[in-house]
């Protein structure tokens, strides 16, 4: 079984190469880059919206990228049940495009934070998290990662088990609602997360290898 993965490249994406490198390093993955102006996804199993600063984060993170031609395709792909993973700026794009609920706003501490943080996986029953350990460490690197959702939306997410990642160890580095670090859509085939799994695929580089477990989960699900 091989997963055909595509990493979307927007102008200003800067974790696209890291995602490609990480997936190339995983067994069972074939990966290619997809320029944002393309209009077809052609036979993919997984689409990754990488981190970075698409369109310089001008206006709001993800607000301009969501109008790229390829995002329409990604929306259709998700409706058909394809796996979509939005990391950091990719998560922001998924929210702006309405594929996931809520918003990501400026960190409560007002400053960018880059460091590995402790996380808790609170639902291992999604295709992305079957093999993810309950306690894990992944790097974050963002200035606008405070997840916000209103009370109604939050109870719905909780009730449906769609909050899959929370900041743990008594920390909440960006002030997110209920320490939310990652959520899935209703069908469970779209995951948006602020931490960077692609940076944690080799122990020396990202301080842990917990990032691999997300990709291993997908392989098992597929």
């Amino acid at each position: 079984m091989t997963i055909e993965a595509g990493v979307i490249v927007f102008p200003g994406s800067n974790c696209d190469r890291d995602c490609v490198r990480a997936l190339k390093g995983m067994e069972g993955y074939r990966v290619r880059e997809i320029w944002h102006r393309e209009t077809e996804l052609g036979g993919l199993d997984l689409v990754v919206l990488p981190g970075g600063f698409s369109y310089g984060d001008y206006l709001r993170p993800g607000a301009i990228a969501r109008f790229s031609p390829i995002v329409r395709e990604v929306t259709r792909f998700a409706e058909r049940g394809g796996y979509v993973l939005g990391i950091c700026n990719g998560f922001q794009i998924l929210l702006e495009a309405g594929l996931l609920p809520g918003a990501l706003i400026r960190n409560a501490g007002l400053r960018f934070i880059c460091e590995p943080v402790p996380l808790e996986c609170t639902n291992t029953n999604t295709p992305f998290t079957k093999k993810v350990p309950r306690n894990l460490t992944l790097p974050i690197a963002h200035g606008q990662g405070r997840y916000f959702i209103d009370e109604t939306g939050r109870s719905k997410l909780e009730a449906e088990g769609r909050i899959v990642l929370r900041y743990a160890g008594g920390t909440n580095p960006n002030g997110s609602t209920n320490r939310i670090a990652g959520i899935v859509n209703e069908k469970g085939n779209v995951l948006g997360m602020m931490p960077h799994p692609e940076r944690a695929c080799e122990i020396l580089i990202g301080s842990s290898e917990d990032g691999r477990s997300f990709f291993e989960s997908l392989l098992q699900a597929a």
Binding site: L59, A63, E96, G102, A103, I105, F148, I149
Partner: peptide, 8 residues
């Protein structure tokens, strides 16, 4: 449609 994120 563009300037505002109605969620927040």
């Amino acid at each position: 449609k563009l300037l505002v994120n109605p969620v927040v």
